[in-house]
């Protein structure tokens, strides 16, 4: 079983990202489970959504205590909490960070076995235009596919129509592809 924590801020679509990822995994024949951290939905506040992916139905219904993968949709989150605090020793982290990850604090680099960055904010601005809240969720899912390689990018595409109106599907598909292509390993 793989456990994934997706960190974002209210309004960025972390819960939707987790649901798309789970739906994509379901499309590939896995038995996924996803749920948000219990709490109010507050714009801008830290949000975390959990995904479990397994080959058979998942019976446990508890929080994720040691994720295999952590996705961080907004670097500001590090000012509020440590999204990587409970990651497994051999875990993977995918962080939205500009400039090919140059200047990423060493404390973060040392904490994670396998670290990737993608400039999802820039991509979001290119694709969705200048929005007050950068919509980085689908871009990071593309990056997830490139980094973790258990879910194919095409499966993400197949899941998109469940979450977006028809006219937005292609736009989000582009975001996923951009995320996939622009992943940087550190």
């Amino acid at each position: 079983m793989k456990e994934i924590n997706i960190y974002g801020r209210g309004g960025q679509g972390a819960v939707t990202a987790a649901q798309i990822l789970a739906t994509a995994a379901f499309g590939e024949g896995y038995w996924p489970q996803t749920f948000p951290k219990f709490g109010g939905e507050r714009r801008g506040a830290p949000v975390v959504a959990y995904v479990r992916i397994d080959n058979e139905p998942i019976v446990i219904r508890t929080k994720v205590y040691a994720p295999d993968v952590v996705v961080v949709m907004d670097f500001n989150l590090f000012k509020m909490l440590n999204p990587l605090g409970d990651i497994k020793p051999d875990g993977t982290a995918i962080i939205n960070y500009p400039d090919h990850g140059e200047g990423l604090p060493s404390s973060i680099i040392e904490e994670v076995a396998s670290l990737f960055t993608v400039d999802a904010t820039k991509i979001a601005h290119q694709i969705y235009g200048k929005t007050t809240i950068p919509i980085t969720n689908v871009t990071l899912l593309g990056a997830y596919c490139a980094a973790v390689k258990d879910i194919s990018l095409e499966s993400i595409y197949e899941a998109l129509p469940d979450f977006f109106p028809e006219e937005k599907v292609e736009l989000n598909w582009k975001a996923a592809q951009m995320g996939y292509k622009n992943l940087r390993g550190l």
Partner: peptide, 9 residues
């Protein structure tokens, strides 16, 4: 509770 960190606007 430094909610200022949540700010987009």
């Amino acid at each position: 509770r430094k909610t200022g960190l949540w700010r987009y606007m």
